[in-house]
Design a binder for these strands. Sequence first.
RNA 1: GGCCUUGUGGUGAAAUUGGUAGACGCGCUGGACUCAAAAUCCAGUGGUAGCAAUACCGUGUCGGUUCGAGUCCGACCAGGGCCACCA
Length: 798
Amino acid sequence: MSYNHIDIEKKWRDFWEKNETFKTDVWDFSKPKFYALDMFPYPSGVGLHAGHPEGYTATDIVSRMKKMQGYNVLHPMGFDSFGLPAEQYAINTGNHPAGFTKKNIEYFKNQLMMLGLSYDWSKEISTSDESFYKWTQWIFKKLYEDGLAKRVDMPVNWCEELGTVLANDEVIDGKSERGGYPVVRKNMKQWVIDIPKYAERLLANLDNLDWPESTKEIQRNWIGKSVGAHVRFKVDKHDESFVVFTTRCDTLFGATYCVLAPEHVLVKKIMSEEQKDSVLAYIENCSKKSDMERTELNKEKTGVFTGAYAINPVNNKLIPIWISDYVLSTYGTGAIMAVPAHDERDWDFAKKFNLPIIEVVAGGNVQEEAYTNTATGKLVNSDFLNGLEVADAKEKIIEFLSEKGIGEKKVNFKLRDWVFSRQRYWGEPIPLVKCEKCGFVPLEDKDLPLELPEVDSYMPTDNGESPLAAMTDWVNTTCPCCGGPAKRETDTMPQWAGSSWYYLRYTDPHNTEALASKEALKYWLPVDWYNGGMEHTTLHLLYSRFWHKFLYDNGIVPTKEPYQKRTSHGMILGENGEKMSKSRGNVVNPDDIVTTYGADTLRTYEMFIGAFDLSASWSEDGVKGCRRFLERVWKLQELVTEEEGYSKELETKMHQTIKKVSSDFENLKYNTAIAAMMALINDFYKRGSVTKGELKTLIVLLNPVAPHITEEMWQKLGFEGRIYETTWPEYEEAKTVESTIEIAVQINGKTKGTIMIGKDDPKDDVIAKAKEAVADKLTPNIIKEIYVPGRIVNIVCR
RNA sequence: GGCCUUGUGGUGAAAUUGGUAGACGCGCUGGACUCAAAAUCCAGUGGUAGCAAUACCGUGUCGGUUCGAGUCCGACCAGGGCCACCA
């Protein structure tokens, strides 16, 4: 009766599939629900890597436990199937990416099934399916109708030789990754989504989520709220003005110059004849630099005087206007007032170009040594602000500026518009047409989905448009509004689009009338637990929270937030402690482990390897250890006695183990849950027998981790029905406490011995016993006796 | 440079959240079984000293709070991650 994982796992895998064991009735609202979601994978050609099973097993464990605890559990899986690798494949081979994608999905799905994951495959989705992206397009249309999707001129990476726009990671050192051609920054029309409009809510609602504090903090930093003011400066001798954003409006008297971003629209209007050449040369130079270069070369400030002067609105002094790339066109207003006395960057710049430095918050040697970063202090050299504390000065100056109509309080966010168009083929077509008369007009709902047409070439066109632009038959259409001639938008959506709302679709994946029915959404939202990789903690979560809030505002979803609890599993590193990669030669293929040791062993191992949210190195010996554990569980069948309940001597241990395993599963502490089960079977072996009742409890507790072997044992031991139909073991709190316990006796905080006590022994008895136990080490002068019930006795003496 | 995170035996890691540091696994050592090996089972396993009971030391470093600190506070050191001229 040896443990043959290959036959056992195949038997139950086939059984579960055939019987649709894990199919969820999403309309059964009679039970409490639990929605356990995994970040769906991109179906790359290489299949699952060793890291995938970690997160998937974790959510699977909780899903299986919750089912046995009486919840209606939704545990679906799907594929984020639009994206670049399939596009590259299409470009390289000339084949349609759909076939390639379909093949990869099949491969992935097969691998996932081999792991014994309890997914409800009847709810599988794929973002590149028409029936799915119909609703992605529908949401985009709504965003457009509500004015949140806009077309704006914005700087992009443009490569003249390749004739295309490139993403940031396709540009290396200012040159195209492919070919090494120069890339410049150029303004082009792009579709963007106005996510900053939701910045305040995206920030505020983080507080109530059950997310790791570090994840929330990353989101907060990304949103980057800062409270400051707008101040308007007039330009001397020109009928022009510009606005700066500052968080330190109290230092306005210390502003000795202004700086505009090189791209600022005013620059070319106000530059003087003498400065014109150098200004234009500087702008030209900047446009050649990639973002990387602009930020990496931050050692030395560069800049050029425009020849124009601004008027400081508080004292009417003329201050020079410079341009420099240390001012970003994309943040704030693209213009700053420079206060070198109290800002590091301004100080560096002023020193380099010999600009005056005026201290306005007392303390420090700002002329010679360094700027002072003064969050508190008293104002000087500031006329009516003199003597005020920084905080008071801020209020007073804002009052002053508001009254004069030259400034106001202003909140700024780092969060920028979400660039939403891609000049690519393998993405959702944007469902708009451009009509000469009506402008951009969305398609009618009945015309969705707008399907991706077949194209002749998957390469972008010569002028940086998507391959769709070459399909004139498809592009030329009629306006849904006036019926006149119109052209389709040829950009597609980014890969973020489908993943921003896919979790909604699982609740009702075959709905043709809506993205999901209201009743289903009302019952299933929010997702109770969402696990995914660390790499998605910023953008994906932000984008999908934003879409969710937008849908909430439109009455489509019933909750303000999509994911109540979010976790991220750690990475699984190679045996040498480095990230797994082909080039390092340390890749572990989960298929091999499943074949050699079994899916149950792999699942157990990945859960036992360490803390769930920390990275861990692979260890083949560790895998063997987990296999040995399952073998020992299997062999318990030879030690089983006919006794149904728990034996007297292990009763407490049984109740403790149920308690620990249940709460550890809930709290993602899989490693210690498994350790507790190992300890339990060690006790069975020590005794040489196990009762039927004890073994029954053990295999139910172990079932979420190792579903195949426990299902087989359940059947072999002759228990009723299937293990997945049983209920989760319960424990009695009173029975988890030992009647006699060993506690430590300390003298002055150092452990000197132990005593056995009854759990309800009175304090005086315990202390007396403790003193007896360490009598030879006590000194006569006892100052204090401390008894922490059930824990420790500490005797303080001199 | 900013923010986050981690630092515990030979090794992966535990520690009821301030109460016997090292559970559980791996490895190693010794033993049983075997002609032998593998597998399996049993025992041991933080360091130093000792035949031993035992004693002292021990959670990155230095200080602090406390009857008591791996856990709390302050400073520092090292590894990992994210952001990075954000006015």
